[in-house]
Design a protein around this nucleic acid. Structure first.
Lengths: 231, 231
DNA sequence: GAGTGGTCTAGACCACTCA
DNA sequence: GAGTGGTCTAGACCACTCC
């Protein structure tokens, strides 16, 4: 592993040259063929290394134009989409779950607009609370499309959370996440045991399966919540 | 493109089989050799398709054990680390920048602890404001290690923001991001034109170059701020 | 020990884009 | 048209892990 000619070694060596300014930002670096000769590797191996650097945002590649060191390393971080339960248990706390309400209901205008729907489709509205060691951790307010996930009609969600059930029964192909800060409304404050207007951390998620909206969920956390990711 | 035997087509077809439960969660799927025959492709091509599915969290692969459909699709989203300026200009607003203070100073206990430093190193403390169309967008409060980035002593940051300068002059190898909601303290409220105690969205970022801390920054946004990522 | 995925090679052809 | 990256192939060997 990490031999002189492994794609990892080649990738890391090239990353080093970029970090240490041997290859300057904006500069054209040698072509794959040349690098392959230099590193004593096949072109495919160099290609793999370069593709990883491109994915990491360190270089920009274009056919015919060649590979350049990125001017503004538009790097990206990855973050794992957790199950609330795993998130809580991962912190060594006991996970508890409480269903607050579950009813079929037409979604309010704002939800409708958020999902980009033109016609009125039947939805299931589920509200529940996730606790860590008896402390409120997340208030989940969710709309599930009965059109996209009809099976959900037969699930009562008293034992399993919608989060968990959907992960196992309703695959998605696309998702959009939005995070922001807000002031707790009276209900959120009560459920999360905060004072009125206290800052909360909100995550909103919409998922689709092939253009069809599956679910929209709003997850509210007390301001002690930390969302962490590493690069 | 997307021919029958391209790695994309193979990847998408396998993703479809997983989404439609033709391959059940936890089930072992055929080996690369078998799949290669089925798709009329080389094993390397199937391998690339499977590696992408594994990276997306749809399958889990282990040597000798084979490839299984993930039980809990631990999927991950990617988000790009933006330059504030690009973020603002990307919204069609005019970017403005104001330096508030710049001074060498030993970091407070809390910063010190956050960086995991044992000895007292010299730091540069920079505070500045980023505006979108004259509206406060982000208050940046940053500590830069003079030990790791000595060149920063000669930069006065009145014309270029530390964010932008560092991206171009101080590469990093590791980064940690933390996001949370908080209540604006009096200074933050004044600078962001909010009322005292209003909810703000805070991003904290620490970057390292080979174990050595480069900078710690706290970025505060008004609660109208949205952080969005797509999968 | 044997079976699976992980990686590498050498060669080939294609796709895109610049001149 | 020509040069660069993008992808595929066929074959090979290796590394890990389960039996």
């Amino acid at each position: 592993m990490s031999e002189r000619n492994s794609f990892r070694a080649i990738r890391d060596e090239m990353a080093r040259r970029i970090a240490e300014r041997l290859w300057l930002p904006g500069a054209l670096i040698p072509g794959e063929e040349v690098l392959a000769r230099e590193f004593g590797a096949a072109r495919a191996t160099v290609n793999r290394a370069l593709q990883e650097l491109a994915r990491a945002g360190l270089v920009e590649r274009r056919r015919r134009a060649g590979t350049r060191v990125a001017l503004h390393p538009v790097r990206e971080a990855r973050f794992v989409i957790p199950l609330v339960r795993q998130e809580i248990e991962g912190r060594g706390a006991v996970y508890r779950y409480r269903l607050l309400s579950r009813e079929e209901s037409p979604p309010p205008e704002i939800v409708h607009a958020r999902l980009g729907l033109d016609k009125n489709l039947p939805f299931l509205h589920v509200r529940c609370l996730h606790l860590a060691d008896r402390t409120p951790y997340q208030f989940e307010d969710r709309w599930i499309s009965l059109d996209a996930v009809p099976a959900v009609r037969d699930v009562d969600f008293s034992a399993i959370s919608p989060n968990e059930w959907l992960v196992q029964h309703a695959p998605f192909s696309e998702a959009e996440f939005t995070f922001f800060a807000a002031a707790a409304n009276p209900e959120e404050a009560r459920l999360l045991q905060l004072s009125d207007g206290a800052p909360i951390f909100v995550g909103e998620r919409i998922t689709w399966l092939r253009e069809k909206p599956i679910t929209l969920v709003r997850m509210a956390h007390p301001s002690s919540h930390r969302m962490v990711m590493r690069l």
